[in-house]
Design a protein around this nucleic acid. Sequence first.
DNA 1: GTCGTATCGCGAAACGTTTCGCTTGATTGA
DNA 2: TCAATCAAGCGAAACGTTTCGCGATACGAC
Lengths: 330, 330
Amino acid sequence: MSTIKDVAKYTGLSISTISKYLNGGNVLKENRILIDEAVEKLGYKVNHLARSLKTNKTKTVGILIPSLSSAFFSHIIAVIEETLIQNGYDSVICGFNFDPKLEIRKLRFLLDKNVDGIILIPERLSADDLNSVLKVSGKQIPLILLDRYVNDFECDTVLADNINASYSAVESLITKGHKRIGIIVGPPEISTAYERTIGYKRVYQDYSLPAEEQLIKVGDYSLESGYQLFNELLDTEDPPSAVFVTNYDMMLGAITAANERGIKIPSDISFIGYDNIELSLIINPPINIVVQPMDLMGESAAKILLKRMKGDYSSYPLMLRHKSRLLFEK
Amino acid sequence: MSTIKDVAKYTGLSISTISKYLNGGNVLKENRILIDEAVEKLGYKVNHLARSLKTNKTKTVGILIPSLSSAFFSHIIAVIEETLIQNGYDSVICGFNFDPKLEIRKLRFLLDKNVDGIILIPERLSADDLNSVLKVSGKQIPLILLDRYVNDFECDTVLADNINASYSAVESLITKGHKRIGIIVGPPEISTAYERTIGYKRVYQDYSLPAEEQLIKVGDYSLESGYQLFNELLDTEDPPSAVFVTNYDMMLGAITAANERGIKIPSDISFIGYDNIELSLIINPPINIVVQPMDLMGESAAKILLKRMKGDYSSYPLMLRHKSRLLFEK
DNA sequence: GTCGTATCGCGAAACGTTTCGCTTGATTGA
DNA sequence: TCAATCAAGCGAAACGTTTCGCGATACGAC
């Protein structure tokens, strides 16, 4: 492995000149050619470790998410990565598998790795956790919260407008004449789940309809819980005439349950799902779904982070809410 | 951010003594206490960049996979990470989103990041690609191929026994009296898809039955292709009486198509899927599936890598094949 | 009392960069 | 022609570690 020193030796120039040129500085044309030749011939590659040690920058951002196996998360990540790459940043991804211990450990890991910034989709982390991890690390690097906020934690945050997305979905069902709508949501500690529940309740309030608590089923955003809770909803003596399932995995479970019971969507029961366009396109008749602005969310999280990493802290903390839209419903 | 130098100053000891102690060396008990106190009070954290620069080790392995959104891949990754963590290694994960350009770029990135080893699930990478990337990086770090091999590339490799898994699945259908079995496979450039096709054909050969090429549908391992190809199979004038879908995403698509056509599994058509136990448990009656030994695969890939990173190159190159099993079939 | 040995600690060099301030020689303008 | 300006290159220090070999001290054995 050859170093900048070898290039210097080869060209007869000094180390600092090589470094300068390699970082975009000006050198004589003849030297430029000479250096290029040396780099090529010696197969010189800059040692990022050494560079980062000196500059205190790694040009790398850490992305921390609850699980790698969620289509929603991984789509967002793809968008983030693309935006970052275009700006010369690479990213390292960590999933913590819904494990609160790992959530903290991985955050530490990223900090230890000297990433220049972090995008986090939090799950169980509290403001205290965050503060203590960030404090003990001693670094002051920008952090963006994505998709979910953390109570009492001040920080740039990029969210979907969950309340109104949920509101519109439920309202569309009400408008069609449904009075009793089942909803399957995630755990209320997660802000998205909390907000989607709010949206649901708000419709009932606004339309002066009685909301029945037993129509609100709290799952854990997993396929299994969607399956089970859908069955629970239908197993009551007076089942709802419509069901709203508020994330992709649970929707998959719910559809599976429906198929298994021989219940047709939407002829036997009205249904609104969440998140996955492809699936809903594939199914015929198509399933109504709430589509989150994944691209926008990923892109703006990345852009804000880039801005912060540049040192631009204007209008901090930023809180962005992107609109979701309802597909196949007017 | 305090450094080892601060700790030295605080304790009155020398830098080298601190370093020695921090790395498990022996120092006087009183000094031990003193150092611990200093570390605590100063909030000292070792700078991994500096350490790695000096030691040429990062205690980090790179994991490179085609996509983050596949349940199969992300499960394997979880296992790998667990094994590595137990051995003091962390990992950085890169997905290349099925994009051949990114596949190479990310491999370079990992090398640039000075990971100590790599686990790769290749997609389009050729032996030439691999050689050139590895060569230009100039480093000689261990690389493990997982799930799929690369033609003409000698390397430790951990695979599932795709041929016999496919063989058993198809054979079980034949045994039940099916003569015409449709199979939906992936692109033949990917070794798993190639092998699963082999297994299918071999059964027909061994049972002296005529194999019909039009029953072999080549997709791209995506949900959409599963959906489409299942429909294609059933849209022929003489549809097969059984269908074998050889990965998870395509299975999802195929099931969706079946539901949509009102075709019941398994009463209307026999069906064997792949990979996801949870789903098959949820569906009632359960779907027959081929279950790959994900845990074993992940674990042994990690273990081999650990061994190689220790410098133990005994019986190189290793080629492991783990058996899959057929669920819900005798 | 001396030698050998074991233990603990230290200084200095090294890892591969970047960066600051300086030198040098050339160019410019009046 | 002379000072002023400027571009290009250089040397050295610094980033925060690890590691090697050496010195000092202490101790037991002879």
